[in-house]
Structures are given as C-alpha cells and as structure tokens.
Design a binder for these strands. Structure first.
Lengths: 192, 192
DNA sequence: AGCATGTGTTTTATCTGTAAAACACATGGT
DNA sequence: ACCATGTGTTTTACAGATAAAACACATGCT
C-alpha cells in the first residue's frame, strides 16, 4: 500500500479546478474532473450525462439482480418471460428478440433453457413451418406474477433516494432523450 | 430543475393517460402501458425511470462503440486505458479494477491483451512483489488522446437531441441519483 | 412445376466476463 | 525464525453473448 496518493488529483498545478458539482460527490464527477485536468480544452459535458447513465444502469442492474436471482432468473430471462406476460399472447422467437432487444441466437438459447425448466412452451406454426410460437406455461406465468411485485417494490425502494418530483422530472427527461434517440439512431452511423 | 414539458404521468391510476406520452413515443412507455393493462394494481412508476436508464444505456453504448471500434478498442479496453490516462500515473491491477468497476480477473485479461498490442506496459513492484504496476506506452497514450475527442464529439452529437437546459437538468438529476445510490447501495441487500 | 430469392430460426465458432480456486507474497504474532 | 492469516493477482472452468454460416421453408417468377 503506497501512501503517496492520498488526494485524487495528483498534479493540479493550474487553478482551474471547477467547483460546480463539488456537493454531489459521485464517481463520474471525479472522473470528469480528472479528464478536465489532463485535457483542459475538451468539452466534457457529454460525459456527465452518458457516463452517469452508464454507471446508473450498471448499479441498478446489479441491484435488480437480487430479487430476480431469488427466483432463479437472470435479467434477460425475466425480460423474455415478461414480454410474453405483458403482451398476453404467444410470440415468435423473432418477435421476442425484437421485444427484448437481443439477438435471435440469444433468444433461441433462452427459449431452450426456459423450456427445459417448464416455464415456456413452443409449438410450430401450422401455416408457415419455419416459425415457432412461444407461450408461457402456468408455472411461467405464476413465476412472473410472483416476481414482478417484488421487483417493483425493490425498484421503488432504490429510487426513494430521489424526491417524487425528481423522479418525475428524471422520467420525463429520459423519455424525451430515449424517444428522440430511438427515432434518430440511424442518422449518425459514420458521422463524427 | 423543473421540467418544462407537460407533466408526465407519474401516478395516474385511471387508464386514460394515453395522450401525455403520445408525443414522446419511446419503447419503455409502450411496455409500461402493457404492464398496466395486465396488472392494473401495480405501481409501474419505477419502470419509467429504471427501464429508461437501462434502455438509454444500451442504445448509447451501442452508439459509442462506433468511434471506439474504429480504433480497434472495446469499451472496457478504452475504460482501462482512460483510467491510466486521466489519473496520469501508473495503476495496479487492483486499482484499475476498482477504477473501471470490473472484476480483477477481467482486468488481468485486458492487461494481457493490451500489453500484447503494445498499448500498456507492466512492471513489478520492488517492495511488494505481489503487486504489479501498469502504465501507458507512448502508443497507448497517443491512441487515447486521439480517440477521446472523437468520442466526445460523437457523444455531443448524440445528445444534441436534447436542448442544453435539458442536458443540464438531466446531468444534475443523474448526479443526485448516482451520488445517493453509490452511498446507499449497501443498505438494501435483502430488503423488500 | 421448377427455381431463385428472401425470411425466420438454429447452429457453430469464438470471445468476454465471472466466480471460485489457486498462487505468491507480505505481515504480525509467538 | 516460523507459521497463520490476509491481501494482490492470476488461473481455471464455465456460463452467456455475438457474428456468420447453415438450415428450413415460403413466395414469386417463369
């Protein structure tokens, strides 16, 4: 254990240490401060949004795993079962892939897994024999219905660190960002 | 701070709230609507925040991969190199693991990879022969310094779908959430 | 009917991350 | 000095994801 580095910024020679977000001490703010010290010319603004979204997502997913794992489910598995539950009808593997934002191959594996555990069932389409239809078994539906309230309660507890108005504002801003993002995402493929 | 848009349906129990979010048609809103139809009693509020954070993170990471992959880097690799660059000094594998929020084993593999490509170098500690010290090579530093501006420009372009005030509000709210989350995360292990 | 083409799904090869064990070494007590 | 214990790092075994190819079948053209 080297005792030489007690303070985060090792070489803050110039007095350009901005004070904007000293009160909210999150890790991303510290990282941004470091970058600004090394590259004073760069606009680090986007980091404060994107870095925090990524970090929040990582922390929240880790937290969400807790109630899910008690039910023996991974998050992708729960997403698949949830898609079947909330749509209320059968879905094909392709539809499930689109609904859960994962690849077709991943969906195939998950269906195989979940079928083996008796949570979903498959049947072939009678018209088009390429396609399959996947539906929840009774056990699968009961599992989802049992886990979802726990999941939501847990999420509510996690988000209770924010005031209700803050939660609403955050949901609104994220909705705006996400809506525009999902609409625009094809426009900047090779841009820069 | 206050959202300047129409108030998003935070706790609307009656099912006639379809119009508010018709303008911001994001996928999460549709999913939440489906869940409310199936389970009218559940408070789906947290989904609108957490679901959107997860979805935004997925979309943004996919987008960020573009400029990174042109440099032949994955995001975890860039995070490792970036940690070395922004701290300005050598880091041990353990420090790198903490700094990049990944496991020690993953860091070991990445270091091996990046060492093979000549982007980082290792040396053993002379005092404590268990620990290693990792530093950027000149090529590694140049690669980071070349990629970072592209990365930030790309992120700026992606975030330009939001107004500057919206970006600031979002960054502030996420900072608050993240700061509290990072502080509290140990308190609700088995809670519900 | 026969064939080219497109679509839905699965398989294969490969890669990355993780948990748990193994390993290497320092440290402190005796 | 010796040993028990703790810490930093690496290895191992394995689960999971992906891209690309393979596969099965429908559809439309001739």
């Amino acid at each position: 254990m080297t005792a030489t580095n007690g303070t985060p910024a090792a070489g803050d020679a110039s007095g350009t240490s901005a004070r904007h977000e000293a009160s909210t001490a999150d890790t991303v703010a510290a990282v941004v401060r470091q970058w600004r010290a090394v590259h004073p010319g760069l606009d680090t603004g986007p980091m404060e949004v994107i870095g925090r979204i990524n970090r929040c997502a990582a922390l929240l997913q880790q937290a969400e795993d807790a109630p899910l794992r008690r039910a023996g489910l991974s998050r992708p598995e729960f997403d698949l079962l949830g898609a079947l539950r909330r749509t209320g009808h059968e879905l094909t593997p392709g539809e499930l892939a689109r609904e859960t934002f994962s690849s077709g191959a991943a969906v195939t594996k998950r269906i195989k897994q979940l079928t083996g555990r008796g949570l979903v069932e498959r049947r072939g389409d009678t018209r088009d024999r390429r396609v399959a239809h996947v539906r929840l078994t009774d056990a699968g539906r009961e599992l989802v219905d049992g886990v979802l309230p726990e999941q939501l309660a847990y999420e509510t507890a996690v988000l209770s660190v924010l005031a209700p108005s803050g939660r609403a504002d955050l949901a609104g801003l994220l909705a705006e960002l996400l809506g525009r993002l999902e609409g625009t995402m094809g426009a900047l493929r090779a841009g820069g």
